[in-house]
Simulated assay, not measured.
Amino acid sequence: MTGNDQTPEATGKVADAVQDNWVDRLAPAPARPYLRLSRADRPIGTWLLLLPCWWGLLLAMLHDGRATWFDLWILVSCALGAFLMRGAGCTWNDITDRHIDGSVARTASRPIPSGQVRVKQALVWLAAQTLVAFGILLTFNIAAIGLGVLSLLPVAIYPFAKRFTWWPQVFLGLAFNWGALLAWTAHTGRLELPAVILYVSGIAWTLFYDTIYAHQDAEDDALIGVKSTARLFGENTPKWLRWFLVATVSLQAGAVIMAVPDGRFLALLVAICGPWALGWHLQWQLRHFDASDNAGLLRLFRSNRNAGFLPMLFFAVALLL
């Protein structure tokens, strides 16, 4: 076996996938290219899509002071929907970016540019994931269903954003944090201001973590003319990350204060610790940020799963109180 046989293109593996992930080890060989197309071998994106859903659900339950068996279904269906819609979004992204991905070292091994999946096959896979997710959405109330359908708009626009704006991370934030609105509405039957503030907080969080992520591709993006906040900020990135950190914590704290009814002081005291715990983790990321260390950038980006769990845990404890 030659050295070239071990390249991602030769093995079918994707360059930035998690080492020894379940897709490469356990999935049937015919399914692997499609699961890679959905980023199932890189689960961090599913977590980043799911966590705002769970934030929204828990805050809605705190706001109402009640929990029902249907909330358990919302919790589970958000996880299923996050997996499916993240997969559909990534499939759409790879279809639209197939010519760009082949020119970037980190993405050249993806299924479409590497020839593992044809565009027509990818379109069928996109439709299948979207239809199953839509079936899950139909179990919610009419307001939540409407929000779910509307979420397709930022998902459809995002892959093109880096062609016309230096702020494509904003469009990613609009798409990735939609679950905060959806889960709140699925529980309460209506969209309210605390959910909107939580949503904007999530967008600021996305700007933080995806700017870090985009620094991995900054040199290649400059060569092919792709825009990003990483390229826009350059050496000033730490200053911008600090502003995104402050916005994330302040807005999420505001959402908590508006969500928890008057008189529930202990619940508010516990829940308000969630945004500060998230801020502490983002500050830790900021201290370790090094734009020249691609492996370190990827580690920081992936650590946002743990960062996003922190508010959820405090919200859950506050709900128990």
Rank of each mutant, 00 (worst) to 15 (best):
E192A: 14
G225H: 13
F164W: 14
Y213K: 06
A180N: 10
L241S: 05
A255L: 06
R242D: 11
A230L: 06
H281Y: 11
L172Q: 07
Y158S: 01
W167L: 14
P159R: 11
A253Y: 03
K162T: 01
Q169E: 15
R190E: 12
R287Y: 07
I257W: 12
L193P: 03
I157K: 04
R287P: 00
T188I: 08
Y158L: 02
A156E: 01
S228A: 06
L251Q: 06
W184A: 06
L232Y: 14
L232M: 13
P168F: 12
A230P: 06
I224K: 09
W178D: 01
A161N: 05
W166Q: 13
Y213V: 01
Q252G: 09
T248A: 15
A277R: 05
T188M: 02
A218S: 14
K162L: 08
Q252N: 10
R242F: 13
G263R: 09
W240R: 11
L268Y: 08
V170S: 09
P159W: 14
S228P: 00
A247F: 11
F233D: 00
N177Y: 07
L193V: 15
A218K: 15
V226T: 08
G279D: 03
W243H: 14
F244W: 14
Y209G: 00
R287H: 11
A267S: 13
V256N: 03
L278M: 15
T211M: 11
Q216L: 05
L181C: 05
Q285P: 02
F265I: 14
Q216C: 03
H288D: 10
A271D: 10
A277Y: 04
L172F: 09
I157Y: 09
F164H: 05
R242W: 12
E192M: 05
T206F: 07
Q216I: 13
W184P: 08
L191P: 06
K239M: 09
V260H: 08
K239G: 01
W240P: 01
K162I: 04
L286S: 05
E192L: 06
F171N: 01
S201C: 10
H288G: 00
A230N: 08
Q252T: 08
T237L: 04
P168G: 02
E235C: 01
L232G: 04
Y213W: 13
E235L: 08
L266I: 15
Q285E: 10
I203L: 14
V270C: 10
L241V: 06
F164R: 05
W243M: 11
A267L: 02
Q283R: 15
L282R: 06
G254A: 13
Y213E: 04
F208K: 01
L268I: 03
D220T: 06
W280H: 15
F208I: 02
V260D: 09
L193W: 15
P261T: 08
Y213Q: 02
E235W: 06
W166G: 00
W166M: 06
F208R: 04
G173W: 12
P168Q: 05
H288M: 02
L207G: 10
G173D: 03
A267W: 04
R190T: 09
T206I: 10
I197K: 07
N236S: 12
L191I: 08
W280D: 08
H288V: 01
V246N: 09
K162W: 14
P261L: 03
L269C: 13
L174T: 03
L198A: 11
D210P: 04
D210H: 11
A222Q: 15
L245P: 01
Q283L: 14
W284A: 11
N236P: 00
G225Q: 13
M258R: 11
R190W: 01
